[in-house]
């Protein structure tokens, strides 16, 4: 797994979830119920701080945040 998905996975497991989960690159995070809306916002805060990006309100959506793969792509696109 690349550095970004690995770091995101670690953050989700350590800072958001109560119980350990098996998270693969394509595991659905939002539609699979792993992240709720508050957890998603916390994750966005982590992404902004860790990767120097700014996420607009309309970008906090299922398409961008529903899997480690999607998050990886989203962060790369924001970094240009």
């Amino acid at each position: 797994m690349d550095a970004i998905p690995e770091a995101v996975k670690t953050y989700i497991l350590e800072e958001i979830l109560d119980e350990p989960e098996e998270i693969e690159a394509s595991t659905p995070l939002i539609s699979g119920g792993i992240l709720d809306s508050i957890g998603s916002l916390k994750l966005v805060g982590f992404l902004e701080e860790s990767y120097g990006i700014s996420v607009e309100a309309h970008e906090v959506n299922v398409d961008n945040l529903d899997s480690l793969d999607a998050i990886h792509e989203f962060v790369k696109s924001k970094q240009g």
Binding site: G33, I34, D36, G39
Partner: peptide, 18 residues
């Protein structure tokens, strides 16, 4: 359990812990 968590999350926007 995952299905409950996912559907409540999507339906009510809140997290079921257990």
């Amino acid at each position: 359990q995952r299905e409950v968590r996912a559907k409540v999350n999507l339906g009510l926007g809140i997290e079921v812990s257990e």
